[in-house]
Write a protein that binds this DNA or RNA. Structure first.
Lengths: 196, 196
DNA sequence: CCCAACCTACCTTCTGATAGGGAGGGCGTC
DNA sequence: GACGCCCTCCCTATCAGAAGGTAGGTTGGG
């Protein structure tokens, strides 16, 4: 949690929106300056290079994610509920168009062409999310709050893939509902005592 | 199937590889010219604008997909086998690094920032794949070669999301094996008489 | 007095795109 | 068969604008 000026926060927020729209090569310092209301050159004062900006952006995105996950684990004891909250989070973001895509999902798809420093942060994010979901799956399986048909790690990867795949489909079809439609059967399959 | 010169075909092939690497804004005419061995300006002779190029590229990608699917339907009667062949196709592409990502998956993630003409072709591709998978699911369910736990259309969307999510994960982790790991339980769940 | 924050002005390189010309093959006419 | 004509393909030269980035100056609060 480095304490940056409000302007720097604004820049990061705008950059995040722009990346969600079109990825790393889909935005420029000029785009940011228009929205923030600052000259292009002034952005370099806060983030010397584009790599610095996006690296910091993804780093914070991961840290925010880790904080959110920690809070979730504290407030929601049931593993199935955690997965539901997680998928609902994305469902809402997509439906109200606030953050209709994951920054790291977009950057991950561009991975081979990304600057190494940024790429490293992106893969770190996926490792984090993946291992967290793995721990949720394992705990839920032990506690009986989740019904797994594979190993916890495999189940975690499959769940993550479904979430991110559903995100892509929602974008591809231009219809937010698709996300929920895809996630529903996945969640019900993980629900104990569910007839299927 | 418009008959274009060999050079035009080469340009499209190189462009496809470049898009798979970094998306629409991740490549330039200069990049293509280096690989094809032709001057930058000469590419404009074959494809007046970048939009023309990528639109044609995606259009052909979809047409090739439709042809491939038609052949698959003729040669493979069993619906479950069709899904296996489909996922194995991607598994191989990812593992031998020949086409480690779907052109349309990458373009779909960039959809909001794409030129409308290109965006239209991309969504058309997804509608095609989705409706095809839907028909496979429905037929498999009726014939008893697939065990569905939801409506065919929903099952199709979920399967598609899993495939594309697994593709992203393989790229994010930099390990091709992940794709197969994720797809295996999905396919076994669709397999009749499978204990789970 | 210093320093963070922002500015203007400018630079280099890349971007997609255009104009115009040259080489060469195909084709009809004499 | 030779001539002229056109058309395809590719070239050089050039463009305007956008890209990321730098240099150096101004302002204002602690």
């Amino acid at each position: 949690m480095s304490n940056l000026s409000t302007t720097a926060e604004d820049i990061l927020a705008v950059a995040r929106t722009l990346i969600i729209n079109g990825g790393y090569n889909g935005f420029s310092y000029a785009d940011i300056s228009e929205v923030v209301g600052i000259r292009k050159a002034s952005i370099h004062h806060h983030f010397p290079s584009k790599v610095d900006l996006v690296r910091e952006l993804v780093k914070r995105y991961r840290e925010d994610g880790q904080a959110g996950v920690a809070a979730l684990e504290q407030n929601v004891p049931n593993a199935l509920d955690i997965l539901k909250v997680y998928s609902t989070h994305w469902s809402k973001c997509i439906e109200d168009a606030s953050r209709p895509y994951c920054v790291c999902a977009l950057l991950a798809s561009e991975l081979p062409s990304l600057p190494p420093e940024v790429a490293a942060e992106v893969t770190a994010f996926f490792r984090f999310i993946s291992s967290w979901l793995g721990s949720v799956m394992e705990r839920g399986s032990k506690e009986g709050t989740l019904t797994l048909s594979s190993e916890p790690d495999v189940e975690a990867e499959a769940f993550l893939a479904t979430v991110y795949g559903a995100m892509l489909s929602a974008r591809a079809y231009g219809s937010p509902k698709v996300f929920g439609t895809i996630l529903a059967p996945t969640l019900s399959r993980l629900t104990p005592n569910a007839a299927h």
